[in-house]
Protein backbone atom coordinates (compact mmCIF):
# COMPACT_ATOMS: atom_id res chain seq x y z
CA UNK A 1 0.00 0.00 0.00
CA UNK A 2 1.33 3.42 -0.92
CA UNK A 3 1.69 5.61 2.16
CA UNK A 4 -0.55 8.37 0.74
CA UNK A 5 -3.50 6.02 1.10
CA UNK A 6 -2.96 5.75 4.84
CA UNK A 7 -5.73 7.87 6.36
CA UNK A 8 -3.60 9.70 8.90
CA UNK A 9 -6.22 12.46 9.05
CA UNK A 10 -8.42 10.14 11.12
CA UNK A 11 -6.20 11.18 13.98
CA UNK A 12 -7.10 14.85 13.66
CA UNK A 13 -10.52 15.14 15.41
CA UNK A 14 -9.01 13.46 18.46
CA UNK A 15 -5.97 15.69 18.45
CA UNK A 16 -8.07 18.84 18.18
CA UNK A 17 -9.98 17.83 21.26
CA UNK A 18 -6.71 17.16 23.03
CA UNK A 19 -5.32 20.51 21.89
CA UNK A 20 -8.29 22.25 23.51
CA UNK A 21 -7.57 20.28 26.65
CA UNK A 22 -3.91 21.28 26.49
CA UNK A 23 -4.86 24.97 26.21
CA UNK A 24 -7.11 24.70 29.25
CA UNK A 25 -5.19 22.37 31.53
CA UNK A 26 -1.63 21.98 30.23
CA UNK A 27 0.52 19.13 29.03
CA UNK A 28 0.01 16.73 31.94
CA UNK A 29 -3.73 16.69 31.35
CA UNK A 30 -3.08 16.25 27.64
CA UNK A 31 -0.86 13.24 28.33
CA UNK A 32 -3.39 11.66 30.65
CA UNK A 33 -6.27 12.05 28.22
CA UNK A 34 -4.11 10.80 25.40
CA UNK A 35 -4.23 7.13 26.34
CA UNK A 36 -7.87 6.36 25.46
CA UNK A 37 -7.34 8.06 22.08
CA UNK A 38 -4.17 6.09 21.48
CA UNK A 39 -5.78 2.83 22.50
CA UNK A 40 -8.70 3.49 20.17
CA UNK A 41 -6.29 4.28 17.34
CA UNK A 42 -4.29 1.10 17.94
CA UNK A 43 -7.46 -1.00 17.81
CA UNK A 44 -9.11 0.82 14.90
CA UNK A 45 -5.99 0.95 12.71
CA UNK A 46 -4.48 -2.55 12.50
CA UNK A 47 -2.29 -1.57 9.53
CA UNK A 48 -0.67 1.24 11.53
CA UNK A 49 -0.31 -1.07 14.52
CA UNK A 50 1.42 -3.72 12.40
CA UNK A 51 3.72 -1.11 10.84
CA UNK A 52 4.71 0.13 14.28
CA UNK A 53 5.42 -3.39 15.52
CA UNK A 54 7.42 -4.16 12.37
CA UNK A 55 9.56 -1.07 12.90
CA UNK A 56 10.04 -1.78 16.61
CA UNK A 57 11.05 -5.37 15.86
CA UNK A 58 13.63 -4.29 13.28
CA UNK A 59 14.99 -1.61 15.60
CA UNK A 60 15.30 -4.07 18.48
CA UNK A 61 17.15 -6.41 16.08
CA UNK A 62 19.97 -3.92 15.50
CA UNK A 63 19.89 -1.82 18.66
CA UNK A 64 20.42 -3.36 22.07
CA UNK A 65 18.85 -0.68 24.22
CA UNK A 66 15.74 -0.36 22.05
CA UNK A 67 12.29 -0.75 23.64
CA UNK A 68 10.83 -4.25 23.50
CA UNK A 69 8.58 -4.74 20.49
CA UNK A 70 5.16 -5.47 22.02
CA UNK A 71 1.65 -4.00 22.14
CA UNK A 72 2.44 -1.72 25.10
CA UNK A 73 5.36 -0.22 23.19
CA UNK A 74 3.13 0.30 20.16
CA UNK A 75 0.82 2.35 22.40
CA UNK A 76 3.79 4.42 23.60
CA UNK A 77 4.82 4.81 19.95
CA UNK A 78 1.37 6.18 19.04
CA UNK A 79 1.38 8.39 22.14
CA UNK A 80 4.69 9.89 20.99
CA UNK A 81 3.07 10.50 17.59
CA UNK A 82 0.10 12.27 19.20
CA UNK A 83 2.45 14.37 21.28
CA UNK A 84 4.38 15.32 18.16
CA UNK A 85 1.09 16.47 16.61
CA UNK A 86 0.48 18.70 19.61
CA UNK A 87 3.98 20.16 19.25
CA UNK A 88 3.38 20.66 15.52
CA UNK A 89 0.28 22.68 16.32
CA UNK A 90 2.17 24.72 18.89
CA UNK A 91 4.90 25.47 16.36
CA UNK A 92 2.55 26.36 13.53
CA UNK A 93 0.38 28.37 15.88
CA UNK A 94 3.41 30.54 16.66
CA UNK A 95 3.84 29.05 20.14
CA UNK A 96 7.49 28.14 19.82
CA UNK A 97 7.96 29.62 23.30
CA UNK A 98 6.05 26.61 24.66
CA UNK A 99 8.87 24.32 23.52
CA UNK A 100 12.53 24.06 24.48
CA UNK A 101 15.15 23.13 21.96
CA UNK A 102 18.88 22.95 21.37
CA UNK A 103 20.62 22.99 18.01
CA UNK A 104 23.58 20.91 16.94
CA UNK A 105 25.47 21.84 13.81
CA UNK A 106 23.67 25.10 12.95
CA UNK A 107 26.95 26.33 11.47
CA UNK A 108 26.42 23.95 8.54
CA UNK A 109 23.23 25.80 7.65
CA UNK A 110 24.71 29.25 8.18
CA UNK A 111 27.78 28.43 6.08
CA UNK A 112 25.62 27.16 3.26
CA UNK A 113 23.50 30.30 3.30
CA UNK A 114 26.37 32.73 3.79
CA UNK A 115 27.09 32.59 0.05
CA UNK A 116 23.62 34.02 -0.60
CA UNK A 117 22.51 30.83 -2.32
CA UNK A 118 19.85 28.62 -0.82
CA UNK A 119 19.96 24.94 -0.03
CA UNK A 120 17.87 21.81 -0.08
CA UNK A 121 16.96 20.50 3.36
CA UNK A 122 16.33 16.79 3.52
CA UNK A 123 14.16 15.79 6.45
CA UNK A 124 12.22 12.76 7.63
CA UNK A 125 9.10 11.74 9.46
CA UNK A 126 10.94 11.36 12.70
CA UNK A 127 10.39 13.60 15.71
CA UNK A 128 9.05 16.96 14.70
CA UNK A 129 9.98 18.20 11.28
CA UNK A 130 7.87 21.35 11.78
CA UNK A 131 10.19 22.49 14.52
CA UNK A 132 13.00 22.46 11.96
CA UNK A 133 11.06 24.77 9.69
CA UNK A 134 10.39 27.46 12.23
CA UNK A 135 13.80 27.23 13.78
CA UNK A 136 15.56 27.39 10.44
CA UNK A 137 13.46 30.43 9.61
CA UNK A 138 14.43 31.99 12.90
CA UNK A 139 18.07 31.27 12.39
CA UNK A 140 18.35 32.40 8.82
CA UNK A 141 15.40 34.73 8.11
CA UNK A 142 14.84 33.26 4.66
CA UNK A 143 11.72 31.66 3.31
CA UNK A 144 11.39 27.92 3.48
CA UNK A 145 9.56 26.16 0.67
CA UNK A 146 8.20 22.88 1.93
CA UNK A 147 7.39 20.28 -0.70
CA UNK A 148 4.38 18.31 0.45
CA UNK A 149 2.15 15.58 -0.77
CA UNK A 150 -1.07 17.40 0.05
CA UNK A 151 -3.46 14.62 -0.91
CA UNK A 152 -2.42 13.03 2.33
CA UNK A 153 -2.56 16.02 4.61
CA UNK A 154 -5.36 18.18 3.25
CA UNK A 155 -7.46 18.02 6.40
CA UNK A 156 -4.47 18.60 8.64
CA UNK A 157 -3.46 21.60 6.51
CA UNK A 158 -6.95 23.05 6.76
CA UNK A 159 -6.61 23.08 10.51
CA UNK A 160 -3.19 24.71 10.28
CA UNK A 161 -4.44 27.34 7.85
CA UNK A 162 -6.94 28.55 10.40
CA UNK A 163 -3.95 29.24 12.61
CA UNK A 164 -2.51 31.87 10.23
CA UNK A 165 0.81 30.50 9.02
CA UNK A 166 3.64 32.96 8.81
CA UNK A 167 4.30 34.01 5.23
CA UNK A 168 7.91 32.97 5.53
CA UNK A 169 6.73 29.45 5.03
CA UNK A 170 5.48 28.30 1.66
CA UNK A 171 3.93 24.88 1.15
CA UNK A 172 4.32 23.56 -2.35
CA UNK A 173 2.08 20.62 -3.25
CA UNK A 174 3.93 18.08 -5.36
CA UNK A 175 3.25 14.62 -6.68
CA UNK A 176 6.70 14.22 -8.17
CA UNK A 177 9.60 16.49 -9.03
CA UNK A 178 8.36 17.99 -12.28
CA UNK A 179 10.23 20.32 -14.60
CA UNK A 180 8.01 23.20 -13.60
CA UNK A 181 8.65 22.53 -9.90
CA UNK A 182 12.41 22.36 -10.46
CA UNK A 183 12.42 25.60 -12.46
CA UNK A 184 10.29 27.33 -9.82
CA UNK A 185 12.57 26.15 -7.03
CA UNK A 186 15.68 27.19 -8.97
CA UNK A 187 14.43 30.76 -8.84
CA UNK A 188 13.82 30.48 -5.11
CA UNK A 189 17.13 28.84 -4.26
CA UNK A 190 18.94 31.46 -6.35
CA UNK A 191 17.20 34.07 -4.21
CA UNK A 192 18.70 32.44 -1.12
CA UNK A 193 15.62 30.51 -0.03
CA UNK A 194 15.50 26.99 1.41
CA UNK A 195 13.64 24.02 0.00
CA UNK A 196 12.59 21.28 2.41
CA UNK A 197 11.73 17.80 1.22
CA UNK A 198 11.18 14.51 3.02
CA UNK A 199 13.84 11.90 2.36
CA UNK A 200 11.73 9.01 3.62
CA UNK A 201 8.52 9.18 1.59
CA UNK A 202 8.04 8.40 -2.06
CA UNK A 203 6.22 11.11 -3.98
CA UNK A 204 5.11 8.59 -6.56
CA UNK A 205 5.37 4.84 -6.68
CA UNK A 206 6.87 5.00 -10.18
CA UNK A 207 9.93 2.87 -10.86
CA UNK A 208 12.94 5.14 -11.23
CA UNK A 209 11.70 7.41 -8.43
CA UNK A 210 13.21 5.31 -5.68
CA UNK A 211 16.20 3.22 -4.73
CA UNK A 212 16.82 0.80 -1.91
CA UNK A 213 19.26 1.37 0.90
CA UNK A 214 19.98 -0.61 4.02
CA UNK A 215 17.99 0.71 6.96
CA UNK A 216 17.66 -0.99 10.37
CA UNK A 217 19.14 -4.20 9.06
CA UNK A 218 17.27 -4.64 5.78
CA UNK A 219 16.88 -2.87 2.43
CA UNK A 220 14.19 -0.20 2.58
CA UNK A 221 12.80 1.99 -0.16
CA UNK A 222 13.83 5.63 -0.31
CA UNK A 223 12.96 8.37 -2.79
CA UNK A 224 15.76 9.71 -4.98
CA UNK A 225 13.84 12.96 -5.55
CA UNK A 226 15.70 15.01 -2.92
CA UNK A 227 19.11 14.17 -4.41
CA UNK A 228 17.96 14.63 -7.99
CA UNK A 229 16.45 17.99 -7.08
CA UNK A 230 19.57 19.18 -5.21
CA UNK A 231 21.63 17.96 -8.17
CA UNK A 232 19.55 19.87 -10.69
CA UNK A 233 19.69 22.98 -8.51
CA UNK A 234 23.43 22.51 -7.92
CA UNK A 235 23.10 23.55 -4.30
CA UNK A 236 24.07 22.21 -0.86
CA UNK A 237 22.10 19.31 0.58
CA UNK A 238 21.60 19.48 4.33
CA UNK A 239 19.96 16.88 6.56
CA UNK A 240 17.76 18.27 9.31
CA UNK A 241 16.08 16.33 12.13
CA UNK A 242 14.36 17.40 15.34
CA UNK A 243 13.64 14.79 17.98
CA UNK A 244 12.25 15.16 21.46
CA UNK A 245 14.31 14.12 24.45
CA UNK A 246 12.31 14.63 27.61
CA UNK A 247 11.12 18.21 27.51
CA UNK A 248 13.88 19.26 25.13
CA UNK A 249 13.98 19.08 21.35
CA UNK A 250 17.31 18.24 19.84
CA UNK A 251 17.72 19.65 16.35
CA UNK A 252 20.57 18.23 14.34
CA UNK A 253 21.87 19.75 11.16
CA UNK A 254 24.36 17.91 8.99
CA UNK A 255 25.61 18.74 5.53
CA UNK A 256 25.36 15.77 3.16
CA UNK A 257 27.00 17.58 0.25
CA UNK A 258 28.33 21.07 -0.34
CA UNK A 259 27.06 20.78 -3.88
CA UNK A 260 25.24 17.74 -5.19
CA UNK A 261 26.70 16.55 -8.47
CA UNK A 262 25.17 13.60 -10.30
CA UNK A 263 27.50 12.98 -13.23
CA UNK A 264 26.05 11.16 -16.21
CA UNK A 265 28.70 8.52 -15.84
CA UNK A 266 28.41 7.07 -12.35
CA UNK A 267 25.10 8.68 -11.55
CA UNK A 268 23.70 5.58 -9.86
CA UNK A 269 26.80 5.36 -7.64
CA UNK A 270 26.62 9.06 -6.71
CA UNK A 271 22.94 8.67 -5.82
CA UNK A 272 23.59 5.54 -3.80
CA UNK A 273 26.38 7.20 -1.79
CA UNK A 274 24.11 10.10 -0.80
CA UNK A 275 21.20 7.81 -0.08
CA UNK A 276 23.27 5.51 2.13
CA UNK A 277 24.57 8.47 4.07
CA UNK A 278 21.07 9.73 4.66
CA UNK A 279 19.83 6.27 5.69
CA UNK A 280 22.71 5.99 8.17
CA UNK A 281 21.89 9.40 9.68
CA UNK A 282 18.24 8.41 9.89
CA UNK A 283 19.09 5.15 11.60
CA UNK A 284 21.19 7.02 14.17
CA UNK A 285 18.19 9.28 14.85
CA UNK A 286 15.95 6.21 15.33
CA UNK A 287 18.41 4.74 17.82
CA UNK A 288 18.48 8.01 19.75
CA UNK A 289 14.70 8.55 19.60
CA UNK A 290 13.25 5.04 19.13
CA UNK A 291 9.58 5.95 19.52
CA UNK A 292 9.59 9.00 17.25
CA UNK A 293 9.66 7.24 13.90
CA UNK A 294 6.33 8.23 12.37
CA UNK A 295 5.97 6.23 9.19
CA UNK A 296 3.04 3.96 9.98
CA UNK A 297 2.95 2.00 6.73
CA UNK A 298 4.99 -0.94 5.41
CA UNK A 299 8.24 0.98 5.02
CA UNK A 300 10.35 -1.98 3.88
CA UNK A 301 7.98 -3.12 1.11
CA UNK A 302 8.60 -1.93 -2.43
CA UNK A 303 5.71 0.20 -3.78
CA UNK A 304 2.92 -1.82 -5.31
CA UNK A 305 4.11 -4.90 -3.48
CA UNK A 306 1.27 -5.02 -1.00
Amino acid sequence: MHWSRVPEATFVPGIRLLLALYSLLGRSAFRLALWPVVLWYALARPAARRASLDYLTRLAGVCEGAPRPRFRTVLRHFAAFAESLLDKLLVWGGRLDALRYEVHGAAALRDALAAGRGAVLITAHIGNFELCQVLATRYTAVRINVLMHTANTARFNAMLERRQLADRLCLIPVDGISLSTAALLAGRVDAGELVAIAGDRLLTGAAGDFQQARFLGAPAVFPIGPYVLAGALGCPLIALFATRHGEMYRISVEQLAERVVLPRKGRAEALRALLERFAALLEAECRAAPLQWFNFYPFWSPPGGG
Binding site: I177, A183, L184, A232, R264
Partner: peptide, 20 residues
Protein backbone atom coordinates in the same frame (compact mmCIF):
# COMPACT_ATOMS: atom_id res chain seq x y z
CA UNK B 1 17.17 13.67 -14.50
CA UNK B 2 18.79 15.39 -17.51
CA UNK B 3 15.45 17.08 -18.14
CA UNK B 4 15.44 18.60 -14.66
CA UNK B 5 19.01 19.87 -15.03
CA UNK B 6 18.22 21.32 -18.43
CA UNK B 7 15.01 22.91 -17.16
CA UNK B 8 16.89 24.59 -14.31
CA UNK B 9 19.66 25.78 -16.67
CA UNK B 10 17.09 27.25 -19.07
CA UNK B 11 15.25 28.94 -16.22
CA UNK B 12 18.48 30.49 -14.99
CA UNK B 13 19.60 31.67 -18.42
CA UNK B 14 16.29 32.93 -19.82
CA UNK B 15 14.06 33.42 -16.78
CA UNK B 16 11.44 31.00 -18.03
CA UNK B 17 8.38 29.88 -16.14
CA UNK B 18 7.40 26.34 -17.02
CA UNK B 19 3.77 25.31 -17.01
CA UNK B 20 2.70 22.85 -14.36
Amino acid sequence: IDALELGVALQRRYGLTLAA
